[in-house]
């Protein structure tokens, strides 16, 4: 069986090589348009040949290779999950000054978080409400709570069980950006997610 196959491949190789030889010999004599595409054909053959060589190898994958491949796939899957989990925690949702209603982009972000929470039904999340430095510390504590509540209520309305979610307000006590610019303030008016 094996000998027969090898013979077949040898024949193919001979055929292809002679074909190549013939093509390269006839090339300069050929002028008609139809035969201009010959060189690509030759290259295709080359690729085909390489593929076949690979296929030969593939037909004998060791246990070791199979294991490695499985591990690689597992690793890729883990990395992807870790990235999704990291994104769940790192992608804050943002608010306007003195507001706790959800913008469309905040809802878009929350929709992604909803999907993730559905994919991982054991996960529990703490939602932190934060404010920028403007406004009083006391009022901002209450405002931060409303922001966390808004995000939580949205997730619950999307079908996430309330007992998987909890909230805390840090008011303006924990800014991510301590600057006093519009950009810093916008970054600080946020609901941040932490997996428990």
């Amino acid at each position: 069986m094996k000998a027969k196959q090898t013979g077949f491949w040898v024949l193919i190789v001979i055929f292809v090589v002679s074909g190549l030889f013939l093509t390269s010999c006839t090339k300069k004599d050929v002028k008609s348009e139809g035969i201009v595409s010959t060189p690509p054909t030759a290259r295709d053959d080359e690729a085909e040949k390489a593929k076949k060589r690979v296929r030969i190898k593939e037909q004998e994958p060791s246990e070791q290779e199979l294991r490695e491949r499985a591990l690689k796939e597992e690793e890729a899957r883990r990395l992807k999950e870790a990235a999704e989990k990291a994104r769940f925690e790192s992608e804050d949702i943002y608010f306007e000054f003195d507001q706790y209603i959800l913008s469309d982009s905040a809802k878009g972000n929350l929709n992604k978080k909803t999907q993730w929470l559905k994919d991982f039904p054991a996960a529990k999340a703490l939602i932190e409400g934060h404010c920028d430095e403007r406004g009083s510390a006391e009022y901002n504590l209450a405002l931060g709570q409303k922001r966390a509540d808004s995000a939580m209520q949205y997730l619950v309305s999307m079908g996430i069980s309330a007992n998987r979610l909890s909230t805390i307000s840090y008011g303006k006590e924990k800014p991510v950006d301590t600057g006093s610019t519009e950009t810093a303030w916008a970054k600080n008016r946020r609901a941040h997610f932490v997996l428990k």
């Binding site: 006391e138 504590l141 209450a142 709570q145 509540d149 909230t167 307000s169």
Partner: peptide, 14 residues
């Protein structure tokens, strides 16, 4: 030694 008098869910402030 402070005594905790309210720890309701959410804020207990001002």
């Amino acid at each position: 030694h402070p005594t905790r008098v309210s720890n309701r869910p959410g804020v207990n402030i001002t």
